[in-house]
Every structure is written in structure tokens, then in C-alpha cells.
Design a protein around this nucleic acid. Structure first.
Lengths: 203, 203
DNA sequence: GCAAATTAATGATTTATTCAAG
DNA sequence: CTTGAATAAATCATTAATTTGC
């Protein structure tokens, strides 16, 4: 008996009950892994489009929705920042003006620093094109699944947690390049994606 | 069928244009009026359903989208609070649990059933800790039009948005007559510029 | 070994701050 | 200067880890 009607058997991600009980999303280890990898490769605030693609891809590993991806990045970004800030404080009591809080100032001089400050969420609907709102924001092209991110990643499967999740694993990420296509240079006028996620949660 | 992308005649901002160019929403005075009235009546955080209705109604006066309504309430709520906070601090250092506003004049005769268990957070610009865990969150039907509009204190319970669970009653909008200006009913069947409320990438 | 009780993580919401169009 | 929009910070709440008493 795998699925208890009333419980959510989870093994650090994976199956959530029998379908009726839907608590909150519980990512599978693979999902977390991929997300983390994306994060590490520089992705911070994925665009709507990116989110959808990621979500779509990750659904292979288990139940997931776009909003989960969105939230994951929000939280992860925030918590990484916070963690670092805390460490910083502990170590040397930076009491002076925290020079690091403003995000776009220095951030990481990471190699693949992605600045995509794209306003995430949705995008304007229908007909009327939002025109060239052209925000100043630097928007860099981002490859969602950089080749080097997954290549080997797929190889190692922790397996620590039993594969309760449906579809097991396997699945090579190798050929799913989410944004690898052209990632659409949004550099020019980007359409002001709009609408906040928060609105769409329901329904 | 003349959809009429939006006659955005604005008293305040002026004429926005014939429907193609739309930077940001520029509410008509009527729209603002209605929104303000709703706010004064106690509405703070309209549900999705409410938002849609409001949007739909207001579309009579001009181009508007659901998200505009959402944002309007977000901003208005925040700014009213902030405004008051500032005044409060400047004037008399209200240290009390001021659940009633000094700003507003006629709102004090609270007698209605709205239970505002919210301990008007804020007041300290500093991030105070809510302290109590207050899991209370009385789930009570949101009253759209409380008889006694308590001023600013945010009678809204942080109502959560359960995916499926509608908090039921979506109050009637039908009877909100603002001043002499009767609200045209939705019957008008405006084109309603979509509600992309439901979004884009949220499944 | 096992659950209830407790704690740690982290998913999901709300609030505050910032940005920039008009 | 006003304010719609977007983002970050803070908070809430649920689930998993972990501990504890049997």
C-alpha cells in the first residue's frame, strides 16, 4: 500500500497523496537539484516564459506548477541573500552601511551573472501590445539549461530517497533545453510582462 | 464589433488615446471615485472574484484590467496606512493601540459586526514582531460594504487564497451606489479587456 | 522501533520599498 | 509630485526532520 488516503507520504519530495490531498508542493530531489543548478548558474528571476519551460520540464519528475518555480526562486534568492548577510554580520560585524543590500549594485560578479531583472510574471494579454515600454533594465540572455549544467548532473542520482515519485527518474535532461533555443533577446523593448503572480493563484 | 480598446478619457491624466497606446493604466475620475468609495466602505483586499467584478464594472468608465484593481487596492491600502502613520507620529506619538483613526472624522461610531482582530500592525515603522502567533484569522465573510466603514485599520483579515475554496459569498456589488452616480450594471457587457488575471503561467 | 511532540526547512502570502511613467 | 507597477523583505503556515518517552 503506497498511498494512504489521508496521508501524504513523502520522501523528501515526491508523491503527494492520492490526488485529493494537496498540501503544498513538495519538490522531488531531482527537481530541487535542477532548480539549484539553475540558480547556481546564475538564474535569479526567471521570466514567465522561462518559468513555464522550467516547470514543464520539471514536471517530468513529479507534480509541479509554474508558481512553484516562481516561488522557489523568490525564496531561494531571498534566503541565500539573507544567509550571506547573516554570515557577514557574524564574522565581522559590518555595522556600517551595508553596501550589499542593493541588489543590482554588485551582486555577484559571477561569470554568468544574470541580471535579468525582468519583471516576471505574466504577460500582457491580448491585442493591445504594451508598446515599447522599454525599461532600462538590463536584460541578459540567459540559457536556462546551460550545457554544462546538466551534462553530468544527470549521471549521479542520489537515490538516497526511495523513488516514490512517479515516473521514477532516469530521464535525461540532456535534451531538454529549456531556453536554449533562442531565449529571445528581450533586449530591445521587452513587453513589459505584467500581472503579478499573486493574482493568479486561484482557480 | 467595435471592441473599442479603450476610450481612456481621463480627467486627470488627460486623454490617453485611441486604444493602442497604453502605458500604464490611467484611471478615470469615475473609476477612482468608485474605488475610493469601496475602500472607504471597508474593502481592503478584494478577492479575485471581487476584483473581477469591480474591474468589469469599472470598465464602463474606461479601459481597465483586473490587475489594475488589484494594484490599486494594494497601493491605496499601503499608502493610507503610511500616511496615517506619518501623521500620527508627527502629531502625537500615538502609542496606543489606535484602532481608530484620528484622521477620519465620521468613522468612529463603529457598531457593526466586523471584527477586526487585527492588531493594527505597523505603527512602528520598524518591523515589529507580531508577537502572538495569532493563528486566529477568523474566517468570516468579508463584508464588502460594512455599514460602518472603519477608517483605515485594515479590517481585512489576511484572508488566504485557497486554490479552490472560494470563500464563498462574493458580496454583492450590485448595490453600491456611489453618490448619485448610479453604477451601470454589468449588463452593459463591456468588452472587458480580458482579465488576464488568470494567468499566464499558472497552470 | 514507533509515534507524539518539538524543531528546522521551506513553500506560500502579505507588507514595505523602490522604480519610473505621466 | 503622484502613483501604477515591480521587487524585496518579512511573515505566515505546512511539511520534513529530529527528538523523546515508551
Amino acid at each position: 500500500m503506497d498511498i494512504e488516503g489521508g496521508f501524504c507520504i513523502k520522501a523528501r519530495g515526491g508523491y503527494v497523496g492520492g490526488g485529493t490531498k494537496c498540501g503544498r508542493w513538495n519538490p522531488t530531489t531531482e527537481q530541487v537539484k535542477v532548480l539549484t543548478e539553475l540558480f547556481r548558474s546564475g538564474l535569479r528571476t526567471p521570466s514567465t516564459d522561462q518559468i513555464q519551460k522550467i516547470s514543464s520540464q520539471l514536471s517530468y519528475y513529479g507534480k509541479i506548477e509554474s508558481k512553484n518555480v516562481f516561488y522557489w526562486f523568490q525564496n531561494h534568492k531571498a534566503r541565500e541573500r539573507q544567509k550571506r548577510r547573516r554570515v557577514s554580520v557574524n564574522h565581522r560585524e559590518q555595522k556600517e552601511n551595508h553596501y550589499e543590500d542593493q541588489n543590482h549594485t554588485n551582486n555577484n560578479n559571477n561569470s554568468s551573472s544574470i541580471k535579468t531583472n525582468i519583471t516576471d510574471i505574466a504577460q500582457l494579454n491580448n491585442h493591445q501590445v504594451p508598446d515599447h515600454q522599454h525599461h532600462e533594465r538590463v536584460i541578459e540572455t540567459l540559457q536556462l539549461f546551460p550545457l554544462n549544467s546538466f551534462s553530468e548532473m544527470e549521471a549521479e542520482k542520489p537515490m538516497r530517497f526511495f523513488p516514490n515519485d512517479c515516473r521514477g527518474n532516469a530521464a535525461s535532461f540532456s535534451n531538454y533545453t529549456i531556453g536554449a533555443d533562442h531565449m529571445v533577446h528581450m533586449d530591445h523593448h521587452q513587453y513589459h510582462p505584467t500581472l503579478d503572480l499573486r493574482l493568479s493563484f486561484m482557480s
